[in-house]
Design a protein around this nucleic acid. Structure first.
Lengths: 196, 196
DNA sequence: TAACTAGTGATACTGAGTCCCATATTTGAC
DNA sequence: GTCAAATATGGGACTCAGTATCACTAGTTA
């Protein structure tokens, strides 16, 4: 890694930590891009060279998460249908995220979302992208184009994971994530399976 | 209705039609609020008195739709679970929207969304509000607080309805909406029901 | 060291959204 | 009808996000 690239990743991280600190302290909307840049010892122009929008700082890691999903999904056995595959991938991810720092990190972000409606709106947009990504991953695994079942499986799985995140956060990170996940998937099956 | 209120609803509609025409002609992002106001023969300030944001013009009718959902859901028999209740409500709504002008109207909006990514983003935000609304309606019907099953049912039902809208629009409004709905709900049941 | 490449900062611009104040218009009471 | 209170409108100034341009500086390569 060249000196130039080193500097770039350092600047990127400096901007990110500065932004998140200010968002936490003063709130997302009451923080201006100028302040973030000043805090990071860099010009406003430079901020926008690293991040296309003010919100994008918060979702920086989210894109990586999409990649993680894709890999876990690709590994699921062929006999599973898209819904089961995504369920399996989420369970695997849940186990993983306990050991890595991922769980802690998402806990801190959750606080930000709770306090800043504007960020929740951005998350909604982001969610649509993630659905598309997961649906694509599920379709790739089946070796065909994205069908309704892939979209449905991606959507349902992501809502479940959102509910898990919320409930886990609400409990102060006390609940067992894996059990929570299983429980919610069981709820989905009970809701959609029994009737008719 | 007083003369004042008459004028207000007229101004509101004038603004809406002016905005939608400009969005269609020049695209959402290339249309400024100043242009919309000028087109409607009103000042910029007045525009913002009627609509809080530029996008909100497009989603004006969406809020009404939420109310419609709520009413149809409240009417579902008590023995149905939240998922079945929402399915029933959507089927009823589908029948209704054929006869009323609703179907045609949503077809026109769909074109707007297809051509304007910025509007699709706003729709994603809007969707979260709708989920909350439907979940609340489903919970009210059960006479308790919003539980995970209400959120899940609302979410799944809304994705299904979105898929219906897309596919119906893609077919040039040729497909039978009711059949499409039944088909997609069947897909959900097949996905989540059979396994394990 | 020289020449090239790529990141940075300053400045100016557009457009959304907010605020405030002066001026019309409508309403209700007389 | 007239007048005063209530309310809608318009104008103008302001903040801030996001874009574009250009001159400048630091890193890379030979």
């Amino acid at each position: 890694m060249s000196l130039r690239d080193n500097k770039k990743t350092r600047t990127r991280e400096t901007l990110r930590t500065a932004a998140l600190r200010l968002f936490r302290e003063k709130g997302f909307e009451r923080t201006t891009v100028d302040e973030i840049a000043a805090e990071a010892g860099v010009s406003r122009t430079t901020f926008f060279r690293y991040y296309p929008t003010k919100e994008s700082v918060v979702f920086d890691r989210g894109r990586e998460l999409g990649e993680v999903f894709r890999r876990w999904i690709a590994e699921r056995p062929r006999k599973e249908n898209p819904f089961e595959a995504f369920e399996g991938a989420l369970l695997a991810l849940a186990r993983e995220s306990q050991s890595s720092g991922l769980a802690q990190e998402s806990l801190e972000l959750e606080e930000l979302f709770e306090r800043n409606p504007a960020l929740r709106k951005s998350r909604a947009e982001h969610r649509q992208e993630q659905i598309a990504l997961v649906a694509q991953a599920l379709a790739d695994r089946d070796g065909g184009p994205v069908e309704a079942e892939h979209r449905l499986a991606a959507d349902i799985g992501l809502v479940v994971s959102e509910l898990v995140r919320e409930q886990w956060h609400a409990s102060g990170a006390q609940i067992d994530v894996e059990a929570l996940l299983r429980d919610l998937f069981a709820t989905v099956r009970a809701l959609t399976g029994a009737g008719r």
